[in-house]
Every structure is written in C-alpha cells, then in structure tokens.
C-alpha cells in the first residue's frame, strides 16, 4: 500500500524540522519541545522499519522509548523550573554561567 520510503522521508523531514525548531526558538521550554519532535521522528522511523521487516519486538522497544521520554520530560521540566526559579528567566541567550 504505502511504500516504507514515504515514512522514512516523513520522519527525516520531521527530524530536520525539529532541529530547525531547536535553533529557531529562544526559550528552554519550546527548545525542549523541539527535542521531543526529533524523538518522535525517530520513533516513526523505527516503527516503519519494524513494519517493513516484520519485526514485532520493535513496537515494545518504541514503547520503552516513550516511557523513558516521559521520565526525561519530567526531569527536564523540573530542571527548567529550577533554572527559572534561580535566574528568573528561561531565555537561552541569558544562560551562560558555564562559560569557560
């Protein structure tokens, strides 16, 4: 029906859009969202590959990826909140205390 190549192309497009979103945005939260987009694009590619090679286990692995992403989101957002509480801002261009 649908050639798997379509899914791949779509996933790559989404991935690159995620990258561009990351650089386009100036606050931590939306940049974080951009990262989530990339993660989802990867999931899509994963499932497409599973489908084309008929590998059911891949779905379980994607399930794990989503779970871990949830945990990561919880921690990531906690850190964002913490930074906001300390610095009163989440604009990335103001956050450079790690400067060498």
């Amino acid at each position: 029906m649908i050639p798997p190549g379509y899914f791949f192309i779509l996933s790559v497009v989404l991935f690159v859009l995620g990258i561009i979103a990351f650089f386009f945005k100036r606050d931590l939260i939306t940049q974080f969202m951009a990262i989530e987009i990339m993660l989802n694009a990867a999931n899509l590619a994963f499932l497409a590959l599973a489908r084309s090679s008929n590998f059911v286990d891949a779905q379980v692995i994607v399930f794990f990826i989503i779970t871990v992403a949830a945990a990561e989101a919880a921690i990531g957002l906690a850190i964002v909140l913490l930074i906001f509480r300390k610095k009163k801002t989440i604009k990335t261009e103001t956050l450079n205390s790690m400067k060498g």
């Binding site: 990351f22 650089f23 990335t92 261009e93 956050l95 790690m98 060498g100």
Partner: peptide
C-alpha cells in the same frame, strides 16, 4: 592555550548544539 580555546566554551546551549 586554555584561554585561546575557551572561546569555544561560550556557555550558550545553542552553540554547543550547533
């Protein structure tokens, strides 16, 4: 040398990502 190279370490997350 550290000083020379430290310009890479801007502290901005976008530069690292780039």
């Amino acid at each position: 040398f550290g000083k020379v190279l430290s310009f890479v370490q801007t502290g901005f997350v976008k530069d690292y990502a780039l």
